[in-house]
Design a protein around this nucleic acid. Structure first.
Lengths: 202, 202
DNA sequence: TTAAGGAGTGAACCATAGTTCACACCTATT
DNA sequence: AATAGGTGTGAACTATGGTTCACTCCTTAA
C-alpha cells in the first residue's frame, strides 16, 4: 500500500480549506452572497474551479459554512453580554446584549445585511433560522430568569425573545436594505436599546 | 384604417389580465412564489406561455403585481385600525392595529410567509421594502400623535415604528418559516399585542 | 369582403452558474 | 524506481426557467 495521507498533507488541506472560506467571507462581507460565485472564488483564491469542489460538496454547503463562520462569533458575543462573569442586573444584561448586537451590526455594514436579510438560497435560509433561534434562545433564557427574579414583569418569554430578534433585524437592517448608510450610530443604538428595555423590562 | 381597439376588447383584455393575476395569486397563496412559474401559470390559466408576456413585461413585474395585490389590502386594514372614524385612545388604536395585522397574518398562513419572508427576487424585495415602509409610516404617525398628546412616553418614533414592523414579522413568521403551524392563535396575538403596548405605550 | 393592427401560440432559444470528469501532477510507501 | 491513492485542472456539460418570435387567428372599420 504505497500512499497514505499524512499529518502534513492533512494540515495543508485544512489550511487551504479555511483559506478558501476566508476568501469567500471577504467577498460576502464586501459585496454580499450575491457576488459569491464558484468561479470568482476560485479565481481570487488562485485555484481552478473544480478544485473548490474538492473542499466543498456544493455551493449551498459553502454558503452555509460562510454564514456560520460569520455568525457564530456574533452569537457568542451576544451570549457573553447576556451572561457575564460578574453578576449584573437583568436590565443591564439585556441592554448590553442589545447594544452588542446593534453596534456590531452597524460596524459590519454590508456583512450585516448579507447575514440578516439578503436573499440567498434555501440552505442559508435554513441556517438563518437556526441562528435566529440561537439569539432568541439567549434572550428567552435571560427573560425567564429575570421574570423569576421579579426583575422583569410577567410575560410570554419566547414571544418576547422572538420579538427582540425582530426588532434588531428590522431597526438595523431596514436602513441598510435601502442602501442608506447609518449616520447617527449612537442615537440609533440608544433608541433601540430603550425601546427593548421598555418592551421587556417595563 | 381598418382596426381600432374598442371598449369591448379593452374590457376583455383587462379582465384576462386580472384573471391571470388572480390565478397567480392563488398559486402563491397555496405554495408560495417559489411555485409561480410562467409555464405553470399559463397552463393553469389555459393559455400559452407566450401569451403571459402580452400581459406582463416580465416575471419580475408579474411577481411585483401579485405582491402588491396581496399586500395593499392588508396595509389598508392596518391603516383603518390605526386611524378609526370614531376617536379612540392611542393605546387602543395601536392594539387594534397590531391585532389586525397579526390575526390576518395567521389566517393567511402560507401567503403570509410568502409576503413577509419568502426569498423571491430583487424586485419583490424592493416591493417588500415599500410595504414595510408603509406599515412603518402608519405606526410612526400614530406614535407621533400619541407622544404629542402625552398618551405615549417620548421616544424616537421612526425607530419605534420600524421595531414594531420587526416584531410583527418575526413573532409571526418565525413559526411559519419553520413550518410549525400556529396552534394557540389567541394567546400568541395577545402576547404580541401586550409586548408592543409595553414597548411603545410604556 | 378585405385590409391591417392586435392577440394567441408554443417550440426553440438563451443566459447564468453550478457541477462534472478525464487527465495530469503530486506525495507517500515498498 | 515503481506503485497507488490523493489533489488540481478547466473546458465542457447540464439544469432550470425566463424570454423570444415567426406564424396564425381574430377583430374592427371601410
Amino acid at each position: 500500500m504505497p500512499y497514505r495521507p499524512t499529518a502534513k498533507t492533512q494540515a495543508r488541506r485544512t489550511e487551504r480549506r479555511s483559506a478558501l472560506l476566508k476568501t469567500a467571507l471577504a467577498i460576502v462581507a464586501s459585496e454580499g452572497f450575491q457576488a459569491l460565485t464558484i468561479n470568482r472564488l476560485a479565481k481570487e483564491a488562485g485555484i481552478a474551479t473544480g478544485t473548490v469542489y474538492k473542499y466543498f460538496e456544493s455551493k449551498a454547503h459553502l454558503c452555509s459554512e460562510v454564514f456560520r463562520l460569520a455568525t457564530e462569533k456574533e452569537v457568542e458575543k451576544v451570549r457573553a453580554a447576556s451572561f457575564p462573569k460578574q453578576p449584573a442586573h437583568s436590565q443591564q444584561r439585556l441592554a448590553n446584549a442589545v447594544t452588542t448586537f446593534a453596534e456590531r451590526a452597524i460596524l459590519g455594514g454590508r456583512l450585516a445585511y448579507a447575514l440578516i436579510a439578503e436573499p440567498v438560497n434555501p440552505m442559508v435560509e435554513q441556517e438563518r433560522l437556526i441562528y435566529r433561534k440561537a439569539y432568541a434562545d439567549i434572550f428567552e433564557q435571560l427573560i425567564e430568569e429575570a421574570v423569576t427574579k421579579k426583575e422583569f414583569p410577567p410575560q410570554t418569554a419566547h414571544v418576547s425573545a422572538a420579538a427582540l430578534v425582530g426588532i434588531l433585524s428590522e431597526a438595523l437592517v431596514a436602513p441598510l436594505a435601502r442602501g442608506i448608510p447609518i449616520t447617527d450610530h449612537n442615537n440609533l443604538v440608544k433608541a433601540i436599546t430603550q425601546f427593548c428595555l421598555r418592551a421587556v423590562a417595563g
